[in-house]
Amino acid sequence: MKSPGDNYYFLLIIIGLIFSLFGDMFLALKINHKDGSLNKYFLYGVISFSLTHVMYILAFVHLGFFNIIDLLVAAVSAFVAISILKSNKNIDFKDMLLPASIYSFIICLMTFESIKLVFLLKFDMGTCLLLVGALLFIFSDIVLSFILFDKHHKKFLSAVNLITYYTGQFLIASTLLFF
C-alpha cells in the first residue's frame, strides 16, 4: 500500500483473483446430473469468473479508457464464438447456453480492453504481460468449453486448460509490479 503503484488497480486485480479462487472451488464441485445437466455449483463458478472479469475490466479501463464501441466489439466477438461452438455437432450447451453467452460477452470485453491498452495506449512490459495473460485466460475458457460441453473431448485438454488458465492468471497478477 505504500508503494508508488496504483492502489485502485491493485485492489481491483486482487478482488478479481479472489473471485477466481471462488470460481475454481465451485468448478471443482461441478457434478453432472444423470440427465446430463450441470448443477448449481457450475453456475456459481460462471458467476464468480464473470465477476473476476468485471474486476479486470474495471482495472484495465482505469488504466486506459472506455468507449461504447467496446461493448459492440465484445458482443460481436461473443456471438461469433458461441456460434462457432454451437455449429460443432459434438458440443451441447445443455441448459447453460444463456449463462455461457453472457460469460462469453464479459470475457470478450475483458480481452478487448487488454488489447486496447497495448495497441492504443502504450506498449510496455506491463501491458504485454496483461495482454498475454488475458489471451491465455480466454484460450483456457475455449478449451474448457470443449471439456464441459463436448462429450467426446480429448483427455489432454484438461492439462492444456489448467496450464493456460494458471499461467494467464499469473501474468495478470504480475502486472501489479508495473502499475
Rank of each mutant, 00 (worst) to 15 (best):
H33A: 15
V118G: 09
N39E: 02
A159T: 13
M96V: 15
L135E: 05
A81I: 03
Q169P: 06
F170I: 15
L135S: 04
S101G: 14
A78K: 09
L109M: 02
A159Q: 11
K40L: 13
G133I: 08
I142N: 04
I106R: 03
H62R: 15
S174L: 15
L129F: 08
S104R: 00
K94T: 10
S145K: 06
M125E: 14
I82G: 06
L17W: 03
G45H: 01
L136W: 08
L129R: 04
I14P: 04
K89F: 09
A81N: 01
I57N: 01
F156C: 05
C128K: 06
G133Q: 09
G64I: 08
I82S: 07
N90W: 08
V132T: 13
P99C: 09
K30M: 07
F19A: 01
L176F: 03
A81R: 00
I14L: 09
D24R: 01
M25E: 11
I106S: 09
S48A: 11
H62C: 12
L63T: 04
Y41A: 03
G16R: 06
F149M: 10
S140N: 10
C108N: 07
A100L: 11
T167W: 05
F65H: 13
I107F: 02
L27S: 01
F105Q: 03
L29M: 15
F60K: 00
S20E: 07
Y44C: 12
H33G: 13
K30W: 06
S104E: 00
F179I: 10
I18W: 00
I18K: 02
F26I: 07
M55W: 02
L121C: 10
I13Y: 08
V46Y: 05
G64N: 06
S114M: 04
